[in-house]
Simulated scan of single mutants.
Amino acid sequence: MSYKFTGEAGAALAFLIGYLAIFGWMCYGYLTHRLKWRSRYSLLFFHVIIRLASQACGVGFGVLGFANTNLFLAFLILGAEGYFSLVLCTFRFVISWHQHNLPSGESWLEPRDTASTNKVRKFLVFLFLGPLAFLVYHDNPMVFFHSALILANAAIVIGGSYLAGADYNDPNSPDTKRRLQISKITRTTGQSVFLAGNAMLLVIILVTMRNNRRDGDSRGKRGSVHPTLWLLFIAWFPLIVRGIFGILQASVFSLSYYNPDNYRSTGFTPRFTLIEYFLGVLTEWLACVILNLTYLTSRHDPKKREVTGDNKMEGKEEVVN
């Protein structure tokens, strides 16, 4: 059987190179200590690794087509996890800005632990309760957001996996119709939670910008907005486009991965390839680039301060940015 380098493989390769460029920059940052492992960038680095794996699978599927369906399934699953990690990244970047720039050194999204015993307790709560940890940490907004996004991500993966077993040679069979309906409900629900999370993220960024303009920040300026917050605001736009596309892809069958009309013998149709990579992959890549640019705008921010047991703040030299 002969294999061809299709347009889909070319699109996947283009974004593989794009993410490799980000990966190279971040590795350089870590090696030169411009970026620290114990910082917000580590979660973004994790997103980049997921996306590299996803794009590599996309290239493979674009060349092999349905001769290797495992690559296709890996592409879908890794793509969903990439979006999940990127949304969490943006929340973490806002929290980090709070901790570095607010006079209290605290973020109202996530109070910092004051003792190692609290950290152990939180780890155990997450270990045994998972996404239900917000029942214990009800005074910690980020735990609630994190838990909601975990549940939404699980709904998307379960819905996609359930639909994978449908018989598309008989789309009118009761089993196929049932699988399509259940998958549509679960995936749309999961994507709706992500979209709601993105909407809440915008509110959080705008409130932070308003407070920053009114109260000032580490620069000692009032009446202006920190450039890092402007970058986070700009990064929100490709994220919301990606979220809306996720809703449409889950609820509109003509945009679904599981619509046979979106495929030909070698893989995706050119129309579906353009839609998928323009609205699904390009948006994530742009948001990732913008989040990396916050390094330039936050280089002179004060170091994060350590919260002691009596809530006093002390200098913390090893954690920056």
Rank of each mutant, 00 (worst) to 15 (best):
L293T: 02
Y168Q: 05
C27W: 10
F194K: 04
F194C: 00
C288E: 09
E318Q: 07
I150G: 05
T269Y: 02
W37L: 10
G223P: 14
F245T: 08
R222L: 07
P270G: 07
A166P: 02
P302H: 09
L293V: 02
R187Q: 06
P111S: 13
T273R: 05
F233N: 12
P141A: 07
F245M: 13
L151H: 04
L73Q: 06
G190H: 05
V281R: 04
H47D: 07
W25I: 11
D215F: 10
Y295K: 11
G197K: 04
R187A: 01
K4I: 13
F144G: 04
F5L: 08
L232I: 10
F75M: 08
I275L: 02
R214V: 05
C57W: 04
N68Y: 10
N259Y: 08
I49F: 12
R219F: 15
A12Y: 12
T297G: 08
S218P: 03
A11V: 14
Q249D: 07
A21I: 13
G105H: 00
D175M: 13
Y137C: 03
Q249T: 09
S104C: 07
F245Y: 15
F126W: 14
A14M: 14
P227L: 00
I240S: 06
D175T: 14
L86G: 06
L229R: 01
W285K: 12
P270N: 04
S192F: 00
R187H: 02
I240N: 04
G197M: 07
A67R: 00
V87M: 05
Y41I: 00
S251W: 14
L286I: 15
N259T: 04
L231R: 01
T297Q: 08
T69D: 12
G79A: 02
G24W: 09
Y41G: 03
T208C: 07
L44I: 13
F268Q: 10
G24T: 08
G29W: 01
C288A: 15
V241T: 13
S96K: 05
S265Y: 08
R38N: 09
T32Y: 12
E8H: 12
N172E: 13
Y30N: 09
H33C: 01
C27E: 06
Q191I: 03
E8S: 06
L43D: 01
H300V: 02
M200T: 09
C57P: 00
T283R: 05
K304P: 14
G79K: 00
V157R: 01
Y83V: 10
E276M: 07
D175R: 15
N311P: 03
A154H: 02
W25D: 02
E276Q: 13
L286H: 11
S39T: 06
K119F: 12
M142K: 13
L279K: 00
D113F: 09
S251D: 08
L201W: 01
F144A: 03
R264I: 12
V63I: 15
V307G: 00
S265I: 11
R187N: 02
P270Y: 10
Y162W: 15
V143Y: 00
V319A: 03
L129N: 01
D139N: 12
Y257D: 03
V289W: 15
A12W: 08
P238G: 06
T266N: 08
F134V: 11
D217V: 01
D261T: 13
T188Y: 04
G165P: 11
R271W: 15
G243E: 06
K303E: 15
Y295H: 07
L129M: 15
N262W: 09
R178F: 10
N262E: 14
T269D: 04
V252Q: 11
A155W: 00
L274Y: 07
H47P: 02
